[in-house]
Amino acid sequence: MQMTRRDLFALAAGLAAAGLISLPADASTDAVEAAIKEFAGGMPETGGVDIGAPEIAENGNTVPIEVFADGAASIMILAAGNPNPGVGTFHFTEMSAESRASTRIRLAKTQDVVAVAKMADGSTKMARREVKVTIGGCGG
């Protein structure tokens, strides 16, 4: 990725600002559960979803995450310890080679990342994985 000096300064300023403000309280377990139920229509069983994430993320502002669930039509990512648990949802199609996607997310602190997969047949699965965060991102 190409970056101009200006971009770099803007980024540095952003990071500094992020470190200075206090973070709102993290999402309650209820909010996480509610988000899972809304997406999956119930509590899915654990297993069948892979979450690829670093064990320790030095910078919570950009944490690489990969999710995979064989046969999933969509996969939702939640960050259980952020002020708002929602992160994003991938939607796969019949053109997808496999139900795998990667992105970079913000994590406010050390917490569980949750992935919920909705299969083409309507069944649902989920997985959790802890990511330790050294410097919190201004997530939410």
């Binding site: 708002n84 939607h91 199609t93 939410g140």
Partner: peptide
């Protein structure tokens, strides 16, 4: 979209990092 047909999509919320990076695979 590929030739007008959706190949992949994503809903993004504020917890996606700045300069969003998205990687996915397709077969054509």
């Amino acid at each position: 979209t590929y030739n007008g047909k959706e190949a992949f999509s994503m809903d993004l919320l504020p917890a996606i990092a700045a300069n969003p990076y998205i990687e996915f695979s397709v077969k054509l």
